[in-house]
Design a protein around this nucleic acid. Structure first.
Lengths: 144, 144
DNA sequence: TCGTAAATGAGAATCAGTCGCTATACTAGT
DNA sequence: ACTAGTATAGCGACTGATTCTCATTTACGA
């Protein structure tokens, strides 16, 4: 048992479960669902309750160390580590979850302008792009 | 809630239930959830199964006569009548559901460009803005 | 080591959304 | 108009994701 977890993203007490979930999340390239994450943990032999996975993801979300978005197909929440605190959007493969972050300040500015003109406050933008990534387009490279 | 349903929206057979759901949808200004719509129907004395509401909304969605989006707070799907077939986005009040449509072609163009550059295909944009509308900001006018 | 607050596990509860079977509306034939 | 045939609609039961409850366990400062 290493003395210090690789990255201590953990707020509050440091537990085996939190470290395990973080490690599993860190080992994935793209966005994953809580369920998928839970499966990976089982495969690794890490016993963590599904509820704990959800709780951890929720707290990290609030802490800003993970990002989440809703799969537009089924409304399922997807998560991934996302250190970049600054505002950005995602280009996400709906097959494998691989994601690219991008910023288009103009977009945000334009949207804010629209909102302000209408007198809206506390605005939140949801802006993500879903598609099929190059790897998933070629069956040979297809990753589930 | 000005006028009657502008057109008979019902594709396929015209039934009491479809007409009722459409009328209920038409009587609402903003986006509503299937559940809310179902409540309204009950209040009116229209007995329609929740599943029927969902199915109707789904078919109208495909027909392009209603619009939907995911509430980022809880992932619930929201619907409203939306005749404008052309691509557009929404500025939605998260309190009362009131929504304004807007178009910013540049946004779509920029987003597509990002996707194409990364080699993504079959891209779908999700872009909506949530906030608190002027009416809901002043407690006196607050609509739940 | 001890005490205490925080975290976890297990499963029940909740809630949006879907499915499979039955009932009904529409059509063609008479 | 009446009836059978067929596709569609309707509805109750179900599913799957997420949250809640609470008894138990654990981390960690004193």
């Amino acid at each position: 048992m290493p003395q210090d977890p690789p990255f201590p993203p953990v707020e509050g007490r440091s537990t085996r479960q939190k470290r395990a979930v973080w490690a599993a999340l860190a080992s994935v390239d793209g966005f994953v669902s809580a369920k998928t994450l839970h499966h990976r943990l089982e495969e690794r032999g890490d016993d963590v309750a599904l509820a704990t996975v959800y709780r951890f993801l929720q707290s990290q979300l609030e802490a800003g160390t993970v990002d989440s978005l809703l799969n537009p197909d089924d409304g399922e929440a997807l998560y991934r580590i996302c250190a970049a605190q600054t505002h950005h959007h995602h280009l996400v493969c709906r097959e494998c979850g691989i994601a690219t972050e991008f910023k288009v300040p103009e977009i945000d500015r334009l949207a804010r302008t629209v909102a302000v003109n209408e007198g809206f406050s506390e605005t939140v933008l949801t802006f993500d792009v879903f598609g099929i990534c190059p790897a998933c387009q070629s069956p040979s490279n297809h990753v589930d």
